[in-house]
C-alpha cells in the first residue's frame, strides 16, 4: 500500500497537503508534487486536504491512473523535499475551476 499524487496536481501545486504531512515525504518539480513511498507512512492525512482531489490511496486509485504509482516512486526521491506550504503555481486557481472544483 502507498499513497500517490496524480495528474490533477499538475500546474496547480497548491500545497495544502504538505502542511499536514507528519513525515516530509512530498517532493516537487516545476509541475507538481510527488510522494516518496519509502518515507510516506500512509496516514492519509493529506488526502482530504487537496482541493483538487489529486491524492489517492493506492487501493482507491482508478484504473486509468495506475501509472502514477510508478511515477511517484521514480520521481520523488531525487527531487527536493517540500517542507512547508509554497505559493501555488501561477494559474492554479484557473486550473482548479477547469478541473471542476
Amino acid at each position: 500500500m502507498t499513497t500517490v499524487v496524480t495528474d490533477n496536481c499538475q500546474k496547480c501545486r497548491f500545497t495544502d497537503c504538505v502542511s499536514v504531512c507528519p513525515v516530509e515525504c512530498f517532493h516537487y518539480d516545476d509541475e507538481m508534487l510527488y510522494i516518496d513511498p519509502d518515507v510516506c507512512i500512509d496516514c492519509s492525512a493529506c488526502i482530504p486536504e487537496c482541493p483538487v482531489e489529486a491524492i489517492f490511496e493506492e487501493d482507491d486509485l482508478p484504473e486509468a491512473k495506475q501509472e502514477w504509482i510508478a511515477i511517484n516512486a521514480d520521481r520523488a526521491a531525487p527531487l527536493p523535499v517540500c517542507i512547508e506550504a509554497m505559493e501555488p503555481l501561477p494559474g492554479a486557481e484557473e486550473r482548479k475551476s477547469e478541473l471542476g472544483f
Binding site: 513525515v23 516530509e24 507512512i41 500512509d42 496516514c43
Partner: peptide
C-alpha cells in the same frame, strides 16, 4: 509498522 516510522522523523 509503517505508521510507526514517524518515529524516524
Amino acid at each position: 509498522q509503517k505508521l510507526k516510522q514517524a518515529i524516524q522523523v
